[in-house]
């Protein structure tokens, strides 16, 4: 482990922390433009966070220590997840500790904690949100795992670094399996980040909300951390998508010269991805909650199909 690698890791840690709210702001801004509104600007999520940090926290009478600890655990998990994905350089010292399966595990850990916290106060909406979140999660998690498995079997490794290095530096080969995986991944991304059509991030309509129902009881710094963690989760998912399906331009280990270009490429990919997400959200409507299992089941089946395609068509040995 070299000092440059550690420095790379530190740079990425700070970068994702700042980039996450900006990405969220960018998506909201794009949506506003697409809907012919002016919008509050890219910085609005940051302003929200600062406002929330300044406020006094209000805790329900029967909130347990679990409820208070969850925002920190959540934030910590999501920060780790976002910091792990090699997007700028393939030389991250933290990466060997967490491979793709463990990454999915970290997402699951965060999901379980936020669901438990939602049930902690004992309100009707809290447990409703927890139940729906776990419903989405139990199909999204294996779907994501299958997508990552497809990439893993192509690159013969579950380490994120090796996957990205393989996919970025191979001759451009079209993998049919990765096409299935990409569609499945997109569906999982939408569901896991509480986006339309599965959930509406800007809703407070009681009967349809999932993510918002779980965090209703949070306020001030706790809410800020939960929101920041959600932004980090979205960033992590977007970067995983970039790493798997568009990894070109990433800096080799220790190659400082390539870093500015990598940074530029990453930002343009994120901007494009965010705009695409906003477009998708504008064009589609939220679906009924009863249809969510169908949607997630489709994602899961597509992901399995991708893996199957790889096993059948692309293995030559």
């Amino acid at each position: 482990m070299s000092y440059t690698a550690l420095l790379f890791q530190a740079v990425q840690n700070v970068l994702v922390l700042l980039a996450a709210p900006l990405l969220l702001g960018w998506i909201t801004q794009c949506r506003a433009w697409l809907q012919n509104r002016t919008g509050a600007g890219v910085l609005q999520p940051c302003r929200n966070l600062i406002k929330l940090f300044h406020k006094d926290a209000v805790l329900a009478h029967n909130a347990s220590p679990l409820f208070r600890a969850t925002p920190y655990i959540l934030f910590s998990c999501m920060w780790l997840a976002a910091a792990l994905v090699p997007v700028l350089a393939t030389d991250l010292p933290l990466s060997p500790a967490v491979d793709v399966i463990a990454l999915v595990g970290i997402f699951a850990l965060a999901r379980v904690f936020i669901s438990l916290a939602a049930m902690d106060i004992g309100t009707a909406f809290g447990s409703l949100g927890a139940r729906r979140e776990m419903l989405v999660g139990f199909l999204a998690e294996p779907a994501l795992l299958m997508v990552l498995f497809t990439a893993s079997t192509i690159s013969q490794s579950t380490s994120l670094i090796t996957i990205v290095e393989t996919l970025a530096h191979k001759q451009f080969v079209l993998y049919p399996s990765m096409a299935f995986a990409a569609v499945a991944f997109l569906m999982v991304l939408l569901a896991e980040n509480a986006r339309i059509p599965v959930d509406n991030p800007s809703t407070h309509l009681e009967l349809t909300m999932i993510h918002e129902a779980m965090i209703l009881e949070y306020s001030a710094r706790h809410l800020a951390l939960v929101e920041w963690a959600s932004a980090l989760k979205l960033l992590a998912y977007m970067t995983i998508g970039i790493a798997l399906f568009a990894p070109w331009g990433i800096a080799e280990s220790g190659d400082w010269g390539a870093l500015p270009l990598a940074l530029l490429l990453l930002f343009s990919k994120l901007l494009l991805g965010g705009a695409g997400l906003a477009l998708m959200e504008t064009l589609s409507a939220k679906m009924r909650i009863f249809r969510v299992p169908e949607f997630m089941g489709t994602a899961f089946l597509l992901a399995v199909l991708g893996l199957l395609t790889h096993f059948l068509l692309e293995t030559t040995t």
Binding site: L116, D120, G122, A130, M134, G137, E141, F149, L307, L308
Partner: peptide
């Protein structure tokens, strides 16, 4: 093999659902 891996992943994810229910209903709430 991939089908089995998928089924195993599904079972593992459902275990999370079950355990949230178990812990949440017994220990959390009112």
């Amino acid at each position: 093999v991939p089908l089995a891996a998928a089924a195993l992943a599904l079972a593992a994810a459902l275990a999370g659902y079950v355990m949230v229910k178990f812990y949440g209903v017994i220990f959390l709430g009112q």
